[in-house]
């Protein structure tokens, strides 16, 4: 029984890992296609049918490039930087519930790697460690532009983490649990959290954009001011890891947004037509990924629509607007709980 449990968990880990990497790889392709569509171009179309092999070509290109480690930098930390960025990007997927449990021969298999009772805090811990990948990489490059880029990126991430945490506190007040599995299960039917926490959702998604360093918050990369930002000195697959981690982060944030605010694997009215739990579970995976893909598209849509902020505007927005707003959101949530006695 114990070995069966370990095999099942190992399969879950490998599948989630591979799906995460696969979706991140094809997000790079999707990003180019979406950008091309918005700018009335065709986008990548040479590698394979409709350019579908483009991510593989990019990956091969990254591997084949010459690898340069600057002489003056600290080699161990220089390599640790992108590794940490990739590691923390992949770790968060462990607590996301992908669907309701599948029952085989009377044994229930939850489609979630682990449902720890502090799921949200776990995500927060991993996100807060994610800053180190950028900071260590930027510092170990021994380059002023890299250091400035790293400081900029980490300052941005720390600032927006606070507002993100405060917006989640309001969510936890309404759900009454920190476990992501329970939060997703609570939202069956029409009880999506976005309906109870619209302001919190807006704050959360904006902070998610800032945490992923996506436009309009992609200040760490700025050719005219900082050359390449924190990855100026990186080449080959180490650069690839930094860039790829952004896409993995985007996938994971989309999954978290879908789970926390948009019902996760739940879809209204489906329970009336389908009663078999296994079919419901498979449908749940489909709905979950549909929501995730929508949010990945949303990330790209914003990127090619809205121009970026200036750095002082970014800080102003984070500290003077979002933090007071999220505290107001907590107060309003408390008032709502008191009045409606939910």
């Amino acid at each position: 029984m114990v070995s069966g449990f370990i095999i099942y968990k190992a399969i879950m880990v490998v599948v989630v890992f591979l799906i995460g990497l696969g979706i991140a790889a094809y997000s790079t392709y999707a990003e180019r296609k979406v950008a091309a569509f918005i700018q009335d171009r065709i986008g990548p179309n040479n590698a394979g049918p409709y350019g579908l092999l483009q991510p593989i070509a990019d990956g091969v290109k990254m591997f084949m490039k010459e690898e340069i480690i600057p002489d003056v930098s600290n080699k161990f930390l220089f390599i640790l930087g992108p590794s940490l960025a990739m590691l923390t990007a992949c770790m968060t997927g462990a607590v996301i519930p992908w669907s309701s449990p599948i029952v085989i021969n009377g044994v229930s298999y939850p489609l979630q790697i682990t449902d720890v009772n502090i799921g949200i805090l776990y995500i927060f811990g991993v996100v807060s460690i994610g800053v180190y990948g950028i900071m260590i990489g930027g510092w170990a490059s021994n380059n002023k532009y890299s250091l400035l880029g790293a400081l900029r990126a980490s300052a941005q991430m720390i600032s927006y983490e606070i507002a993100m945490g405060l917006s989640i506190i309001a969510l936890v007040m309404t759900t009454g649990t920190l476990s992501l599995g329970e939060i997703a299960a609570q939202q069956a039917g029409w009880h999506w959290n976005v309906l109870y926490q619209p302001l919190g959702f807006l704050i959360f998604i904006t902070c998610a954009f800032a945490e992923c360093n996506r436009t309009p918050f992609d200040l760490p990369e700025c050719e005219t001011e900082l050359v390449g930002g924190y990855h100026t000195e990186y080449s080959s697959m180490k650069l690839g890891f930094y860039l790829f981690a952004e896409y993995v982060n985007m996938f994971i944030s989309s999954a978290i947004i879908a789970t926390l605010y948009f019902g996760g694997y739940n879809m209204p009215l489906v329970g009336r037509f389908v009663t078999d739990p296994n079919i419901l579970s498979i449908l749940g995976v489909v709905f979950m990924f549909a929501k995730v893909f929508f949010f990945i598209f949303f990330f790209m849509w914003i990127r090619w629509t809205i121009p970026r902020f200036r750095y002082d505007q970014l800080m102003h927005l984070g500290w003077r607007i979002f933090i007071p707003l999220s505290i107001l959101n907590i107060l309003l949530t408390g008032l709502g709980i008191l009045v409606f006695n939910k």
Binding site: V116, L121, G125, V127, I129, M135, W139
Partner: peptide
């Protein structure tokens, strides 16, 4: 004590040490 562990990571490793690192790098 999972809660304590998570909060320990978030507060010490995630917030305070980042600021330490920040100042020392500067």
């Amino acid at each position: 004590a999972q809660f304590l562990a998570a909060v320990h990571i978030i507060v010490y490793a995630g917030a305070i040490m980042v600021l330490f690192l920040y100042v020392i790098m500067m």
